[in-house]
Design a protein around this nucleic acid. Structure first.
Lengths: 227, 227
DNA sequence: CACGCTAAAATTGTCGACAATATACGCCTA
DNA sequence: TAGGCGTATATTGTCGACAATTTTAGCGTG
């Protein structure tokens, strides 16, 4: 049971590289949601054989970005309100647990690092008010740290490797530039404070609320865009 | 988002078949925990080429039965106390959530089915008192039903496809024939009652306790066997 | 014109061989 | 004899081609 997970590992094999490229393409909508995946086409596009490509597809299925049917091929996942709800329902619970465990297992040094990270975000955010991309990356970065702080490898694997690409996909393809930017920082602060105080129960609660608020925000976006 | 998951699907491809065979072999200790996986050897043993075998290995990694290192090969996972703890920590939370959602989403018909299932277990268990295998299968069956009842595809996928083979592996390789057999039935009854009453909060609590008790039981087994 | 059947095309699944990388062995040196 | 280096071996990663299956297109029939 090792704690550093593959997502942070830089690609060493051709399958790793093409995985990252396709992941990015799907998350950012470069390959349209719901569209069919053609192995021969992708193989040509990325200039490699089908063997490493299929390896990559297997991992894409693992993080729920594509759905495969035997002998019939793969499709990029479709975004839906029910899917979003199910995903965030899970996140609320899992990241709440992660917070509780982080309050038990994070070292003081790690907590200090996260606080420095938040200070950085605050500074850079004041400068480029409203640029959602940095906010988003920063938010994910914060969540990553806390999740890793749980020191539970299964939990880390599920959240960082299997669910987060899909979370990003929903965020990116739904815009995510609302007025929530500034409030999120305060919520992050409160969470890391609870963790620093070793108050797992509170950290759990605050994280659940934080994610619930984030979910409502995206749902609003969804309604406005018109499903 | 479809609710019936691959685990219940019968194998259609060669990779599917060999996956199931290797899964069983690892879970039951036929392939020793911690041992190295040799692709050429397994390919000969199951009489197929390395392509479908590697597909199977990718899925074995997904359900945490093996660990792969690029260019260096795969090893069967090692069982450990910390691993068991991390796994059950997650199960407590996730299956608790599953219960809460099941209380909201299960149909009356589905609840009736689960109750019939429990009656069957009780009858057959009275007959073959103490035979742990059936008990284990029955227990897992109950948990499966509840999890499916949550109607959350991500939750179902994580519990049934990714974590449960490992749970079974711990159970099988640690014996699991303790005196807990009879108490589990009562706990199952209480859980389905809570779900039937649409009391999600109570169902959540009871399931967490049920799994915590199960964990303590296995930990005891571990200590006795001598890690 | 719609429907079902048949045949052709395309796609996925599997195979055996080659290339790149890691492991194991033997040798040399201190 | 212990330790490090270089080669030999074995294993994993990748490739191109073939087999099996599905999808598509065309045809005939009701």
């Amino acid at each position: 049971m090792h704690l550093s997970h593959p997502a942070l590992r830089q690609p060493v094999t051709a399958a790793d590289r093409v995985l990252q490229e396709i992941q990015r393409a799907i998350v950012e909508g470069d390959i349209a949601a719901g569209s069919k995946i053609s192995e021969p086409e992708l193989a040509r596009r990325f200039d490699l054989s089908r063997a490493p490509l299929r390896e990559a597809l297997a991992r894409l299925e693992r993080c729920h970005l594509i759905e495969r049917i035997p002998n019939a091929g793969a499709r990029v996942v479709k975004l839906s309100t029910t899917g979003l709800l199910a995903l965030y329902q899970l996140r609320e619970n899992l990241e709440g647990l992660a917070c509780k465990l982080a309050a038990e297992h994070m070292t003081d040094a790690e907590i200090t690092e996260v606080r420095q990270l938040l200070d950085q975000h605050l500074a850079s955010q004041r400068v480029r008010e409203g640029e959602s991309y940095y906010q988003e990356a920063g938010d994910l970065d914060f969540h990553y740290r806390v999740i890793l702080g749980s020191k539970n490898s299964y939990l880390i694997n599920i959240l960082c490797d299997e669910l987060y690409y899909l979370v990003r996909m929903y965020r990116v393809q739904l815009g995510m530039n609302g007025p929530r930017v500034s409030r999120a920082f305060d919520e992050h602060k409160a969470i890391i404070n609870a963790i620093a105080n070793r108050d797992g129960e509170l950290a759990d609660l605050l994280m659940r609320r934080h994610i619930a608020a984030s979910r409502r925000n995206i749902e609003l976006q969804l309604e406005q865009t018109g499903t």
